[in-house]
């Protein structure tokens, strides 16, 4: 009896070891690639952020925390005293706000679209997916110009509305936050639709059928069955829209008019004409820390809930 039990334990342990080994083997290529070519650059960035700016760009090997101090405090140009400054926080706030709104917008448009594709016959689905991504085979800049032409004062939308007699004067969309919002959704929509589709596609419609048998309304089915099933896709899609949206700079400049800085512009500027690489590095790391913490909390919660299913 005891012997049998111990072989069972041994077998289970052996299986666990095998599983662990397989797991790390599977992870190895991605972890190695990113470990070397992603984390090493990150380390360089971390080091840069604690150095002093070099003449005309680059860094000099002199320890300094100025880059971080500068983020929150400003040295008064007159007497050199440090005072709290919200300039950078405002820029971060604006970018985060816009990225967030764009994520919600993309979800509102993307979810029905992904569902629509997932409910098509299997042989058509890939074609639909392809159609969603096809516009993105053209260049971002050219695409953004095309959006610009549509939302201009003399653009298709305004001309159409005026001709239809709905408005007398064009609605100013271009060079406002609305334009940036539209542009961001446009740029990142497939990043929302595709993960959503990937998780919706496996939805078991027998559950839906059962729910209807139990006299559930369509909304209840949506809320209790479809949305929970799509949850991993919602998480993935939101991450893929929100984070790149934070760093976007071409869309905000072209459609928003470029009068206000976004995080992306701010950081790029430090590596360009401002010639302050340490500050650029620090600003990037601060952004990354914020995003990372938010993401880890998000994923931990999601996987804890996910554990209940399994």
């Amino acid at each position: 009896m005891a012997e049998a039990q111990s072989t069972l334990v041994d077998a289970r342990r052996a299986a666990e070891v095998r599983e662990r080994r397989a797991r790390w083997l599977l992870l190895a290529p991605a972890l190695l690639t990113i470990g070397i070519f992603g984390l090493f650059p990150l380390t360089i960035t971390l080091i840069y952020s604690f150095l002093s700016p070099g003449t005309y760009g680059g860094v000099t090997w002199e320890f300094s925390t100025d880059a971080y101090v500068q983020f929150l405090f400003e040295r008064d140009i007159f007497d050199g005293t440090l005072e709290f400054s919200s300039t950078y926080l405002q820029i971060y706030g604006r970018s985060i706000g816009l990225a967030f709104v764009a994520t919600v917008g993309a979800l509102i448009i993307g979810f029905p679209t992904a569902y629509f594709i997932a409910s098509k016959p299997p042989e058509q689905r890939n074609v639909w997916l392809f159609l969603i991504t096809l516009p993105f085979w053209t260049n971002l800049l050219i695409r953004t110009y095309a959006v610009l032409l549509i939302i201009r004062d003399e653009g298709i939308i305004n001309l159409g509305l005026i001709n239809a007699g709905l408005i007398d004067r064009p609605i100013s969309i271009l060079y406002t936050d609305t334009a940036v919002f539209i542009g961001l959704i446009y740029s990142y929509l497939p990043f929302m639709v595709l993960p959503l589709y990937a998780s919706l596609e496996k939805l078991d419609f027998r559950l839906v059928e059962a729910a209807y048998d139990l006299y559930a309304t369509r909304f209840q089915v949506l809320r209790r069955i479809i949305v929970p099933a799509a949850k991993p896709g919602i998480v993935a899609g939101s991450i893929l829209v929100f984070i790149p949206g934070l760093g976007a700079y071409i869309t905000p400049t072209l459609l928003g008019g470029g009068k206000e800085l976004m995080i992306g512009n701010l950081i790029a500027l430090q590596f360009g004409s401002s010639r302050n690489w340490p500050f650029g590095s620090a600003a990037a790391l601060i952004l990354m820390a914020v995003v990372m913490v938010a993401l880890l909390i998000y994923v931990r919660n999601a996987s804890r809930e996910g554990g209940n299913h399994g």
Binding site: I77, T87, L269
Partner: peptide, 20 residues
Amino acid sequence: RPCPQETVDMYNKIWTRLKQ
């Protein structure tokens, strides 16, 4: 001519405030 770093830093502050 290229400006000294202190001047560039001040320009940078002005620019950031302008586009805040």
